[in-house]
Design a protein around this nucleic acid. Structure first.
Lengths: 163, 163
DNA sequence: ACAAACCATTGTTGTCGTCAATGATTGTTT
DNA sequence: AAACAATCATTGACGACAACAATGGTTTGT
């Protein structure tokens, strides 16, 4: 612990505060920062949703359903990036709460269309600000235009990488 | 029910392509993007480290040790954000590989100082580009200055939030 | 009719994060 | 000095989560 580092290591551009202790080591890596902030974001989401008994995955599924008017579970799996087996449990929970309902696909009997039920719509309306609240708390140290910039960058990364 | 924080400033929407299909639903939220990209980042890290038998947590611990010349496990826990119980297993693995070694603290006999062994130093030198490779792959759609910008923004968020 | 591909589902495994409990040691109080 | 509380490393347990294999029912192609 006697690492009184006075040497400011040249970290290409001094735009980041190099003096901060947490900045040493792998913390300086953007990939690692992404990994760590992702964990924190998930925790905040789940904490905010805990009151409603749902978790982030449920919420994401509901939000997606609100935009497509029914989707096969296969589609949910691909679009949300969750494993098909995970979709089953999520839809089970949401169906038990009356937020969504499974309907047989007219043309393909092995598919099951998951559609947003009125109760789910109401829930989404009530908890509309959950995601915004989490993001606000997470990005508190950033100003409005910085948040927007971060949003754009993250969107680009998420898009071309996993879209 | 969830009035977490009165919406401070209206985030400008419109600069992101809203027409893209992946953009619907919760994907548009910065917090959710962070969560999702964090998962992807962790996967990439673990995949890149799989050859060496280590995982992201091991690597992060090694990288941190390389900067401090010995740290109590308690310090590792706080600095890396892992639970003390997690540190035990990580140090066990790394000690088994000869990458680190536990030394008794001179002033406090209940503390155990974890220090980087020569083998661990060599490993870090060999796998120096792992983190950079992952970040490059992750941030492929971004240009150099955009990556730098993202890095700065993420650092700020991670700093004031968890520092 | 037969085989291959697809969809939803179940089950399993390994990792991860959190918490509770223990033993040993140190600091503090009386 | 003795009793008490706090700290550190460690172990264990529990639930959440992601990735994968396997199954039954269904459609498609030959």
């Amino acid at each position: 612990m006697t690492s009184r580092k006075t040497t400011a290591e040249p970290v290409e551009e001094g735009s980041v505060d190099e003096g901060a202790p947490w900045m040493r080591g792998l913390h300086a890596d953007a990939g690692y920062l992404l990994y760590r902030l992702g964990l924190r974001s998930g925790q905040l989401f789940n904490a905010a949703l805990q009151r409603s008994g749902l978790r982030l995955r449920h919420y994401a599924l509901l939000r997606y359903l609100a935009t497509v008017e029914g989707a096969a579970q296969r589609e949910l799996s691909q679009e949300l990036g969750y494993d098909p087996s995970a979709i089953v449990g999520l839809v089970d929970d949401l169906e038990r709460l009356g937020f969504v309902e499974r309907r047989p696909a007219p043309d393909d009997r092995r598919r099951r269309i998951v559609a947003l039920a009125p109760a789910g719509h109401d829930f989404l309306r009530d908890s509309d600000e959950v995601a915004r609240g989490v993001t606000d708390e997470l990005l508190a140290p950033l100003g409005p235009q910085e948040r927007e910039m971060l949003h754009v960058l993250l969107s680009r990364v998420a898009h071309t990488d996993g879209g």
